[in-house]
Design a protein around this nucleic acid. Structure first.
Length: 187
DNA sequence: CGCGCCAACATTG
DNA sequence: CAATGTTGGCGCG
């Protein structure tokens, strides 16, 4: 399966994203600021580049509720896929769900009695989410707080940024959101 | 009430 | 095999 990479500029605190695409769709996306050292081939298909950069840009500008890009699930395991798809279909824009609730909703952990264990496993699945942003893993929060996020220290900032974009969190003073916020502030 | 500590043992790479 | 994006309960000040 040929995989090629597309780099998309974003207003996220982590900087640009790297998106890996195959003929079937997006297989992997990354918030990594310095994806420069990858030996993977760069995507040269103009149609894919336009689709990926366009939709992600529109979503991050608040003009689109979801990126709506095709996802290639072939590299994702069964349980993992079920949980990610449950999140994708059951948790809409602007809503959040806790790790434990998502675990229960997905039905993957029905035999598990310990609530904390299922929740923890979901957290692991989110951390291992191959397609962050496309699958809104940032909408999954802890029962008593915002929860964690991959990608090191900037990761949690990215999560807060996305939740602020979706109106879940109040904008902070250092909020450097997309252009539309000044239009919203005017009106 | 807020904070720190502890155990439980699934899924992933 | 080790590490994890949790959870709920407990004790303390």
């Amino acid at each position: 399966m040929s995989t090629t990479w597309i780099t998309v500029g974003t207003p996220l605190p982590s900087g640009p994203m790297r998106i890996a695409v195959t003929p079937a769709g997006v297989v992997m996306s990354d918030y990594l600021p310095d994806g420069s050292a990858t030996s993977a081939p760069v995507c040269t298909d103009p149609a894919k580049i336009d689709a990926v950069t366009g939709r992600i840009t529109e979503y991050l500008a608040g003009r689109r509720r979801a990126p709506d890009l095709p996802i290639d699930w072939s590299r994702v395991g069964d349980a993992h896929r079920v949980v990610l798809r449950t999140l994708l279909t059951e948790v809409p824009y602007g809503r959040t769900i806790t790790y434990g609730e998502l675990a229960a909703l997905s039905g993957v952990f029905e035999g598990t009695t310990e609530p904390g264990l299922a929740a923890r496993t979901v957290g692991q699945m989110m951390a291992a989410n191959p397609v962050p942003l496309l699958v809104p893993c940032h909408r999954v929060v802890a029962a008593d707080g915002i929860g964690g996020f991959g990608g090191g220290r900037v990761g949690i900032e990215v999560k807060r940024w996305l939740l602020t974009l979706e109106g879940v969190l109040e904008p902070t003073l250092d909020w450097n959101g997309p252009d539309w916020v000044e239009a919203a502030a005017r009106g």
